[in-house]
Design a binder for these strands. Structure first.
Length: 622
DNA sequence: GTAGGGTTAG
């Protein structure tokens, strides 16, 4: 192909062009071109049209050839290069040829090229038409070029396209993707009711969803679409509405839309099914998500990822990794969204070997390493205790977002590096590129708590609301109680709880109970345990801690009393549980659980597994 | 022309 591309630029090409009038025209056949699926065939036809002169004299022929090369996309590394060269050889491309190029570039990885070509066209006699504008506006939207978009809008008005529904729909999308939802609404409202179609509705709905997170507004608009007698919603409308329900965790409405879909005879395609899986997942309905997922016949990467993400969101990390494995066996290649979820699962399990393997998998499979993946990796390495590797990746990133800073700060805090965590937070503030959010402050406060830095903690608690206008959530109050409690400031901790503007939950009382136990304050421990019992009468955690507190002060009768009460109410102690990675295999261990064998037996099994693994050739991607 | 999945958390 490269050979041919270069031919187009050579003097030989000009020579053939100049003698082409000598040849007859009858070799070209449009029907033949429609069937052409290989570069070699296209080259043959193209050569014929050049030799016969048709390529340069008949705009229909050159446009048809261009369209064929674009739709076949012959070269994977540079999918549009060949077509672009071909296009430049057309002496006076008609509007069809221009629009083919605009369409291709507006969907490509370099939409800028679309605008460059548009500028080129504006220097010719050819005027844009109603097909041109949607492509150019899409390129503006993808590049967030609001001013350029406005300019194009003005040109379209000059050409009298204010009631063309294709152009208006593209304007709605462009304005909302450029952050101008209000203007998008103005365009939508200005469309005569009989002109509006389902794409107009879908465009304004997804506009509300994408950049400004106006999920409630999106659902109201979906209601408006249902009430529009001239338009019937389609699969795109349903997918957007489900996505809004997912974002709002609105299970009732999500179920209603699911029912509406079934009764309305909508096609349950892989797109809608993925939205359904996600909706049930975000509403905490793992079983329903699983049911929908199991029934999807041709599962693609998106629905696999939606289900893996569902497991991660429900803290089912082992299941998430297992499903990823099944996805490998189904020969579906993961993408950046999938690996971000799976890496997160590895982090939560402390599965460093698996996490490293997935890092390598990304490199082997050429998965796009976007910021979400790097953030998940940094988080995974620090959760697994490999702070050096986490830092190495953190420093490697030239662009950092609020997740990047937050995972690193939190990672340092949880590894006991409080001073370093606070230093990094200062760096974040100085860099002034990213604004910390409420989760960043959870990291900062937990660093203070683990380092016993009471004054600093109180300072940052103030900074959070006063400087950054962030309202502390129950989690932040929890950090503060933990901070005061660990520092043996039990009275202050109790006062702090009383002064909280929100009702304390069990986690707050558990922190106080734990601190009271550590510092042997039995009265306060009893008080906190009572509070927990009121909130969670069937759970045993508080009583176990209280019994431990009595034991720590040798109050054996009280220990017996608490244990007896637990027995009488048939409340059993929940066994502690932890995950251990043995040569990349995640094993779950419970306290007093010998299902994996006794210690020497476990070691024996581990040795045997190691021996087997040494002699087995495992496909590294399965 | 419009559509689905992702990273941080006491």
């Amino acid at each position: 192909m490269r050979f041919f591309t270069s031919i187009l630029r050579t003097p030989l090409f000009s020579f053939v062009k100049s003698i082409s009038f000598l040849r007859p025209y009858h070799n070209y056949s449009p029907a033949l071109l429609d069937k052409c699926k290989h570069l070699k065939q296209l080259n043959q036809i193209l050569s014929q049209t050049i030799v016969t002169g048709l390529f340069h004299s008949d705009p229909f022929v050159s446009s048809k050839l261009l369209l064929n090369s674009l739709s076949n996309c012959f070269h994977q590394d540079d999918p549009l290069g060949f077509s672009h060269t071909l296009f430049l050889q057309i002496p006076k491309p008609n509007i069809f040829a221009w629009n083919f190029m605009f369409r291709a570039y507006s969907n490509s990885s370099c939409p800028t090229e679309c605008l460059m070509l548009y500028n080129l066209m504006r220097h010719t006699q050819i005027l844009p038409d109603n097909y041109t504008f949607p492509f150019i506006l899409k390129a503006c939207a993808r590049l967030s070029l609001l001013e350029k978009g406005r300019e194009i809008h003005a040109v379209s008005l000059n050409l009298g396209l204010e009631v063309d529904v294709f152009v208006q729909n593209a304007l709605i999308s462009m304005y909302s993707l450029c952050g101008m939802v209000e203007t998008a609404h103005t365009v939508f409202n200005a469309l005569p009711v009989l002109v509006r179609d389902v794409v107009s509705w879908n465009s304004i709905i997804s506009g509300c969803m994408q950049t400004h997170a106006h999920y409630g507004k999106a659902l109201k608009l979906f209601g408006g679409l249902l009430g529009d007698n001239n338009v019937r919603p389609n699969e795109v409308s349903i997918a957007s509405a489900l996505s809004a329900c997912a974002k709002l965790s609105s299970l009732d409405l999500g179920k209603k839309i699911h029912a509406f879909m079934i009764t309305g005879g909508f096609k349950l395609d892989v797109f809608i099914s993925s939205s359904l899986v996600d909706m049930y997942a975000k509403c905490g309905q793992t079983d329903d998500a699983q049911n929908v997922f199991d029934r999807i016949p041709d599962k693609n990467v998106v629905c696999w990822t939606a289900m893996i993400a569902c497991y991660v969101q429900s803290d089912l990390y082992k299941e998430a990794i297992e499903l990823f494995r099944e996805m490998q066996l189904a020969r579906v290649t993961a993408d950046s969204a999938t690996v971000a979820c799976v890496i997160s699962a590895c982090g939560h399990l402390g599965a460093l070997d698996q996490g490293r393997w997935i890092h390598g998998y990304c490199e082997r499979k050429g998965i796009e390493m976007n910021l979400s993946v790097w953030n998940a990796l940094i988080d995974m390495y620090s959760k697994c205790g490999d702070l050096n590797k986490a830092f190495e990746n953190f420093h490697f990133l030239t662009q950092k977002d609020v997740f990047t800073w937050t995972v690193m700060i939190t990672g340092l805090a949880m590894n006991g590096e409080s001073d370093q965590a606070l230093q990094l937070f200062s760096q974040m503030e100085v860099s002034n590129s990213v604004r910390p959010n409420d989760v960043t402050f959870l990291g900062v406060l937990s660093a203070c708590s683990h380092g016993g830095l009471v004054e600093k903690g109180s300072h940052y608690f103030e900074v959070m609301s006063q400087k950054y206008n962030l309202t502390p959530r129950i989690e932040h109050y929890g950090c503060m109680v933990d901070l005061l409690g660990r520092a043996n400031l039990l009275v202050e901790a109790q006062k702090f709880i009383s002064a909280m503007p929100i009702e304390p939950d069990v986690v707050i009382w558990r922190s106080l109970l734990f601190a009271s136990w550590c510092h042997r304050n039995i009265d306060l421990a009893e008080f906190a345990a009572n509070q927990i019992e009121e909130l969670e009468p069937r759970r045993c955690g508080a009583r176990v801690l209280l019994a431990n507190a009595y034991a720590a002060t040798s109050r054996w009768n009280d220990v017996k009393r608490v244990r007896k009460a637990m027995d009488e109410q048939s409340i059993e102690k929940q066994p502690g549980c932890s995950f251990v990675e043995v040569n990349g295999v995640i094993r779950e261990f419970l306290v007093d659980d010998f299902s994996h064998g006794r210690r020497d037996e476990i070691l024996d099994i581990v040795t045997r597994i190691n021996n087997i693994l040494q002699h087995v050739q495992v496909d590294p991607d399965i």
